[in-house]
Structures are given as C-alpha cells and as structure tokens.
Amino acid sequence: MTDSQPDPLTAEPPRPPIPHAGAKTVAMVLMTLLLLAGFVLYVMFARGVFEETQRLVLLAENSEGVTIGMDMTFSGFALGRVRRIELGEDGKAHIHIDIPTRDARWLRTSSVFTLERGVVGGAKLRAHTGLLDDPPLPDGARRDVLIGDATAGIPQLVTSLRELADNLVRITADESPLNAGIANFRTVTGGLTGPRGALDGLLGTAGAQRIHESLEQTNRLLAQTNTRLYGKDGLMDDAQRATGELNALLADVRASLKKTDALLDEARGIAVNARVATADLDALRSEVETSLRRVSGLIEEVNRKWPFARERELKLP
C-alpha cells in the first residue's frame, strides 16, 4: 500500500454528520458488550454452571432416547440434568445425572427412577419418591432405572397387523369361503327378483315348483269352496233357511214351556192343598189314637168285667 492523500476533486461528499456520534458509538459498544456478557452469564446460569450439584448414576438396559442435557423430572418439575451417557463395563448404559444440591432432598434411598418412551415425543426420565422420611440419596449413588417403553409393543402389533392382512387376503381371495358365500348370496338375491321370489333361494327350484303347484291347487279349492258355500242354493243358503225354521221351532218351544209353567203352578197349588190335608190328617190321627186308647181302655175294662173272653188282641183299622 502506498501512502497517498485522496483527491479532493473526486472525493464523495460526506454524509451529514450525526451529532454526538462518538458518545453514541461508545454507548453502543458498551451495550453490546453488556448484552453479550449478560447473555453468556444467563446461559451459564441456565445451564446450572453456578449450582452445586451431586451426581446420580442410573443404570439402564439401553439409553435409547436419552440425550445429553435432558431433564429428569420429579412430580413434573425438572430436578436434574443428564450430564453424560456411557456404556459401562457391565454392558448397561450409565446415565450420569447432575442434581442441584438444593433439589436433592426430594430423592431418597427408596426413590424409584423410570425411563419412559412414548410413541410421540422423546424419552422421559422420572423420579418417584414414596417415602420422604427415608435417608437422602447419597452423592454418586447408582440406581437401576425401570424402562417403560410404549413402542415395545409395536413389533407385536406389526406382527398382528401382518397376520390380519394375511387373513384379509385369504378371506378376499377368489376361492375363499367369503367369496363363495357372496356368490351364493348373489344367487339368492337374484332369485328374489325372479318369478317365484325367495322360494327359489329357500327351497330350491323343485321345492319352489311344488309349493307353487300346491298354491295353485289351494286356489282352485278355495274357488270351488266359495262356489259351494256362497253360490246360489249353496251351503250358506241352506243354513240360512235352517236358521229360520229353527227360530220358528224355538217360538213353539217357548209357548210349550209357558203352558208347562202354568201346569206346574197348578201342581204347586195341589201340593199345598195336600200339605194342608196332611196336617188335618195328623190331627185326625191324634184323635183316632186318643179314641183308640179310650176304646182300648174300655175293652180292658169290659174284659176285666167279662170273664169268658180272654182275647186281648186289639185290631186297629
């Protein structure tokens, strides 16, 4: 680079000066540095750099879905953060979790840790503490994690779906029973629209033919019966005439019964008279018996006075 001055004839005219540009620039640079420092400090604070933590190692069969920085929650609140994941010598995934000391009081020796994987969303590490009176979880504790995997059933589900699809293919094949049934049903429904309707489908052609012939015979029989019953000089006319004669006969019977009633009334009067006569007869009998006792007494008196006659037998009338 050579040191030369700009040609004033060709120089671009300067922009109108902005007042207090120096102070504004210093303020802006300071603001930028402050914002930058504040952002960095805030992120460090958010990352838990300034927090005292204790370590918890969770042992899992596999760490699928677990990521560095993901939260471990307790009752829905973030309690710790995954710091490191490694494959241990025992073949298990070792999930190292940093727990702020002030939050570690929620974890006890009896706490249970679960790793749940949903169909949607990532895996979730949760801590469950049933007995808060148990001793606190020590620093560097190692615990097994229980895995609840909603996607574990997917292979079985896929297998079932495949079987279902195979069954569907089998069912819908050309020679499948379902197709045969549908063909039969089509035959039946086709017969329904035929001249003999559902009979062809239900009884077959021969049976439907017999039923049809029986119906025709029945129809002819009904026609003949109609003629015999309701035709001129038919059975109904005879019955009507017989009914008229029966009515006349019944009128005669009613008159005869009235006469019989009168006879019975007379017989009832005779009976009453006979009952009265019977009462008089009783009085007469009493008198006769009285008279007989007197005659008997008289005879006994005569016999006592008549010594020849020993015949004491008395003959009543």
Partner: peptide
Amino acid sequence: RERARGADFGTPALFRQQVAPGVAANLL
C-alpha cells in the same frame, strides 16, 4: 462511485478513512 472516479482504496489514507469505518460499522 469513488472507484469509478478513480480513487485508489489501496492507499492507507483512503483505506483507513473510507473502508475500515464502513467495515467496522456494518460488523458492529
């Protein structure tokens, strides 16, 4: 426009006066 008028921005004066301030300003 300056370059079309033949200004040489390789010279230290123009470089410091017109190039560097613009670069610093846009960057900031």
